[in-house]
């Protein structure tokens, strides 16, 4: 069902995946808040081999003026992949896929941010993918949420994100590039841990209703792990005593 034929063993008989992880084990994740001096807020995330930098500006004047809203601030998100982020050079112009991801990340962040205090302004989120290895939209969403908090944009909750999926007929956490290409399903989940609400849910592939439920649950559990790291990153920047930088 689905998936591409390949010689790659996605899951061996011991339950170990192609990169040595267990089925419910995420990749190595490192999040750092701050780092960019000229942005109002910023974050850097390493999610396995993904490396993503996010800068946030705002609230600030809206240009072009006609985009502004007199009732509330607006959120604008640009997800962009560097030409060197993938194996073969990527054209730096925004592709169909990048436009879609910008849109879904924006919609995943909107339930969290409180912009009605800033009418006629915009908050701009710039996401630069320096190195991509599957699951960039989740990593980018998690980093964008840290950068927004760093910029001091009021938020109802942080948005954590992690992907779940299905490969070799098993539900797995945190799908990597190989599993995304050769696996049977990929499901990015964005989640607000304190409010217990899902803000992003996409599915590429085929799942039975039972598998779907399990997949969402696995994804949400992954988000909770990511949330702990987001929390740690912000605490490190703001509350580390003597942490001058």
């Amino acid at each position: 069902m689905g998936g591409r034929e390949s010689t790659l063993v996605l899951l061996d008989e011991n339950g170990i995946r192609c990169d040595g992880r267990k089925v419910d084990e995420p990749r190595r994740i490192m999040i750092k808040a701050g780092g960019l001096k000229n942005a109002d807020g910023s974050a850097y995330i390493e999610f396995g081999d993904n490396k993503i930098l996010v800068g946030v500006f705002g609230p600030r004047d809206v240009h072009p003026k006609h985009m502004s809203n007199t009732d509330t601030g607006i959120l604008r998100v640009r997800y962009h992949m560097e030409p060197f982020s993938v194996g073969e050079r990527k054209n730096p112009a925004p592709s169909r896929r990048e436009i879609e991801i910008s849109k879904v990340i924006k919609e995943a962040l909107l339930p969290a941010v409180i912009l009605d205090k800033f009418p006629r302004t915009a908050v701009d989120v710039f996401i630069e993918v320096l190195q991509a290895d599957g699951g960039t939209r989740c990593a980018a969403l998690a980093a964008a949420s840290v950068a927004l908090a760093d910029a001091g944009i009021p938020m109802r909750d942080m948005v954590a994100a992690c992907a779940a999926g299905k490969a070799a007929d098993t539900i797995i956490l945190d799908v990597n590039n190989e599993e995304d290409q050769a696996g049977q399903a990929d499901m990015p989940v964005g989640y607000m841990p304190n409010l217990d609400k899902i803000t992003l849910l996409q599915l590429d592939g085929v799942l039975s209703p039972e598998e779907f439920k399990k997949c969402v649950k696995v994804g949400v559990d992954g988000c909770k792990l990511v949330y702990e790291l987001q929390k740690k990153a912000l605490h490190e920047k703001y509350f580390q005593n003597g942490g001058d930088q």
Binding site: A112, A149, M155, R156, M158, L195
Partner: peptide
């Protein structure tokens, strides 16, 4: 307490002020 967005400060009948 040190808090980040989303942290529950307390529950019960308190008046929410700034932030």
């Amino acid at each position: 307490k040190y808090v980040i967005p989303g942290d529950v400060i307390t529950t019960g009948p308190y008046r929410p002020e700034q932030n």
